[in-house]
Design a protein around this nucleic acid. Structure first.
Length: 887
DNA sequence: GTACTCACG
DNA sequence: ACGTACGTGAGTACA
């Protein structure tokens, strides 16, 4: 068998791996708070190269430390390098463990770099007749390429490799591999921090080497060069050139205490890898282990199910007893329009699968599902309820929802895919939908119907198996009431709101569309005239060029990729360039046109002229809802133009009206409650204008009349800032004041509201000690970054620790209000229907005759949702459209 | 798929 | 010294 040696530059590949998944740094944290992104990507790389090269021998070389024979020669070698981020260095020891699991030797050598180990072993292996593949992120190693040795350099992350054979090196540099060191000697290397020859870069170096072959060749023939700046530099930097070349040269005779025989691949030790993956929380690698797979396959093979038919369904339904697990499959995402493809019902170990959804119409089955005395275990009760409802089937008695429970236990465990979610809980026996149905355009039912049936049975089994696990966790977290009394029943309230939908005046939207378009056309022509040419105004790239290059306007702010053209920037330019103000107008109108006019028209249901949004109940980190397809929680209100969109939101019929109620300052009231601050509480108890009251305190005013509108505005920003987890910089940006000024405001605020200050300090401490923060109703958010060494990550976690209990408790409160509201409407036998929730407000439609009743009832219910140390305040209004909602 | 921008609380 | 306000969704451009 041909011997084949794989040599990996451990540090360099780990470095690449770390930055390949750098944007995911927060998502790759194990249960001990260890970052794992580099380990994960390194593992992926290992799988790729082992599969590609199928080596018989392998070695991963690491750097031993900072000091090497190179730093002895040149003290500043690699001197300018930033310190390795701690999030990466903490991962390096675990890479060795991973390699042990893979049966691959790792090695480091004092005073030498990984390069030298690799160079030495490559030469030895070559001499012994091996084929050698080197994997590294560092192009310098291409100097080692020969006919037997290929240097594979990572490109874009770590999974794509560029293979440098001598021929490829020549293609790239027009040099022999051994001349790479001469090139480095001449051009230097900024990342390794050695100089080379002044003003000589890669291009010049290559030109010289093509003529003279090597650094030595150049200096031997220096006299033959005609006089030039370059010649002067070469003469002056002679010593540097030779030093740089020697630094770039990989030592292929390092005293490596390894024999080739010691590098034989031992094969994976799956038991070790299993432990390692458990420690790292790597579910996907774990699931690829054959010991895991065979266990999973055995369990899946043991999974028994029967197929429901028209003949057996009634008898089977009749004998099912509480609790039953039920799952309705709809492949399409949007359950308001999705077709139902099949379902499964049963209990532990006995599953009945149907791919014919008409069987749901069987009276015995319908009755069972609608019977609240028979407990149901499901995954995503809202989706199931709506799907069934569209088939004329009622669902009641749900006592467990895997999706909801998982979200409450940890807001990060919130995949909508049952298979993925189960995996997050270490449960492996159910495939992901993507694996079974595919994705994108090719998504569909498997050709083999039994694959589909098995998948449904496996889902039911997973729900049933995980039910006790999740219930235990909820109980341990003191979250049973939150689950059973709040989120589960709320799902049905939300489902009813989604199903009810909100009626849209299509003619109104079209009328607005025409008006906006006319104004847009005028502005577009004006902008083209001002710019001196036509361009795509929607492209921030093109716009940046026009403003800052063609028109030479001052650059206020940059983004990662170029010039920022955000509102703040354009506002600042308004005074010197009228085009800025036209672009702002254009942006405003074009946003309305695309997102709100055409966007909403696209999602109006053709049959009922209504919009049925979908609320995501398990998405946000704070407990708020989110709204999609379309988002009805961000319909314009602040600007007059945008606000008109609300004229298109109308009640279901002529003699009905829209009614809305909102909590006033709910977050500040929550803050007053949980901080226990006497001064803040007093302000609310006395019914003061809270922003004016804060203004009096931070500006030291004696009389309410002394508060100017500007003082109130600034105090309002301070109040908001406190809720967001304040910083002087953030406040100064928001108010356009100096950082010092902002700092004074904050100090004054904390002096006046000392218990708020104490709260912000205490909650951060709590987060550090227990790793999470909680809302009034025990909703929990984990904050692993609270311990981060990185200042930014840690600061962010600290602000989140302050904000989440406030925002989250406010979310809890309105959820309770919604539950009570639904009951009250039924108890009062009102036709009024709750339609929308926008974080601190509820929107209803009702017969005009019921509006006075609602004006009384809704604030009462919202007030009574929770009893805080301060009173609640609820504002209401009604009108013919959402736009017209006024007191 | 990511970046940018902007709508809401 | 570090570089920010908290929580969302959608449209467009561009690679």
């Amino acid at each position: 068998m041909n011997k084949h040696l794989l040599l990996v530059d451990g540090n360099s590949v780990a470095f690449r791996a770390f930055f390949a998944l750098h944007s995911q740094l927060n998502r790759f944290v194990n249960h001990d708070g260890l970052h794992t992104n580099a380990i994960y990507a390194f593992n992926t790389m290992l799988d790729v190269v082992l599969d590609q090269f199928k080596p018989t021998h392998a070695l991963v070389a690491f750097d031993a430390g900072k000091t090497t024979f190179r730093t002895e020669k040149f003290a500043d070698y690699k001197g300018q390098r930033d310190k390795t981020p701690t999030e990466l260095s903490e991962q390096l020891p675990h890479l060795r463990e991973l390699l042990v699991g893979y049966g691959i030797k790792s090695y480091e050598l004092k005073n030498y770099e990984a390069d030298d180990i690799i160079g030495t072993m490559a030469r030895q292996a070559e001499a012994a007749g091996f084929k050698v593949d080197i994997v590294t992120g560092d192009r310098d190693l291409t100097q080692l390429a020969t006919d037997q040795v290929t240097v594979n350099v990572t490109v874009k992350g770590v999974n794509t490799l560029e293979a440098y054979t001598p021929a490829h090196v020549f293609e790239k540099y027009e040099l022999e591999p051994k001349q790479i060191i001469d090139m480095k000697g001449l051009a230097g290397d900024t990342s390794d921090n050695y100089p080379g020859v002044t003003k000589v870069g890669e291009k010049t170096a290559i030109k010289l080497l093509k003529q003279f072959g090597s650094v030595e060749g150049i200096y031997d023939n220096l006299d033959s060069l005609k006089a030039s700046k370059m010649k002067e530099h070469l003469q002056a930097d002679r010593e540097q050139a030779f030093l740089s070349k020697s630094l770039a040269t990989i030592n292929t005779n390092a005293p490596v205490a390894l024999t080739l025989d010691a590098l034989v691949c031992q094969g994976k030790d799956e038991t070790k890898l299993l432990d390692f993956y458990d420690a790292m929380d790597f579910q996907s690698f774990k699931s690829k282990l054959s010991i895991v797979n065979s266990a999973v396959q055995a369990q899946q093979a043991a999974l028994k199910y029967d197929v429901l038919t028209a003949d057996n369904v009634a008898a089977i339904a009749a004998q099912l007893t509480s609790p039953v697990t039920f799952y309705l499959e709809m492949l399409a995402d949007n359950y308001h329009t999705a077709e139902s493809n099949g379902f499964v019902i049963g209990h532990q170990g006995t599953w009945y699968v149907a791919t014919d959804t008409a069987l749901l119409q069987t009276p015995a089955l319908k009755q069972l599902l609608a019977d609240s005395a028979i407990e149901k275990y499901v995954f995503d009760v809202k989706r199931t309820y709506v799907g069934l409802q569209r088939l004329g089937v009622s669902l009641a008695g749900t006592t467990f929802d895997l999706l909801l429970a998982s979200y409450l236990v940890d807001t990060n465990d919130n995949s909508n895919d049952l298979g993925k979610l189960a995996l997050l809980h270490g449960y492996q026996n159910v495939a992901t939908d993507e694996a079974v149905y595919g994705k994108g355009a090719s998504k569909g039912l498997p050709e083999d119907i039994t694959v589909f049936e098995k998948h449904l049975a496996a889902k039911a089994q997973a729900i049933s198996d995980l039910q006790p696990v999740l219930m235990k966790k909820l109980q341990d977290n003191d979250q049973l009431a939150l689950f059973t009394e709040m989120e589960l029943p709320l799902a049905l309230v939300l489902a009813d709101m989604e199903i009810a939908g909100v009626k849209i005046d299509i003619d109104k939207l079209n009328e607005l569309k025409g008006q906006f378009q006319q104004r847009l056309d005028t502005i577009i022509q004006k902008i083209y005239a001002e710019a001196g040419k036509e361009f795509n105004i929607n492209s921030s790239q093109q716009l940046g060029k026009i403003l800052f290059e063609d028109m030479k306007l001052p650059v206020i702010k940059r983004t990662k990729t170029g010039y920022s053209t955000a509102v703040g920037v354009l506002e600042a330019l308004k005074g010197i360039a009228p085009i800025a103000s036209d672009i702002l107008d254009y942006r405003g109108l074009s946003k309305l046109q695309s997102t709100y006019i055409t966007g909403l028209l696209k999602v109006v249901h053709p049959e009922d002229q209504k919009i049925h949004t979908t609320y995501l109940q398990t998405l946000t980190q704070t407990g708020r809802l989110s709204s999609i397809e379309p988002n009805l929680q961000n319909i314009p209100v602040r600007d007059q133009d945008g606000r008109q969109i609300r004229q298109a939101f109308i009640p279901r019929s002529e003699d009905w009206a829209i009614f809305a109620a909102d909590y006033s300052q709910i977050e500040l009231r929550v803050l007053a409650h949980i901080s226990g601050d006497q001064n803040l509480q007093a302000a609310f108890k006395e019914g003061l204008d809270i922003h004016a009251s804060t203004a009096m305190r931070i500006f030291g005013l004696a009389q309410p009349e002394d508060v100017t509108p500007n003082m109130r505005r600034e105090a309002k920003a301070v109040n908001f800032g406190i809720v967001y987890g304040i910083s002087d910089y953030g406040l100064s940006q928001n108010l356009g004041i100096s950082r010092a000024q902002a700092k004074t405001y904050i100090e004054n605020y904390f002096r006046e509201y000392p218990q708020v200050k104490a709260y912000t300090e205490a909650i951060v401490k709590t987060a550090r000690e227990q790793g999470y923060v909680e809302t009034l109703f025990h909703r929990r958010r984990y904050l692993p970054d609270i311990h981060a060494k990185n200042f930014n990550l840690r600061s962010f976690a600290e602000r989140t620790a302050m904000n989440t209990p406030i925002q989250g408790s406010a979310a809890d409160i309105i959820k309770v209000a919604m539950l009570h509201m639904q009951h009250a409407l039924a108890a009062e036998k009102l036709q009024a229907t709750m339609l929308l929730q926008v974080h601190d407000e509820l929107i209803f439609e009702a017969p005009k005759t019921e509006i006075p009743i609602l004006a009384q009832l809704v604030p009462e219910v919202m007030d009574a949702a929770v009893s805080l140390a301060v009173p609640m305040k609820v504002g209401t209004g009604s009108g013919a459209t959402w736009y017209n909602v006024k007191d």
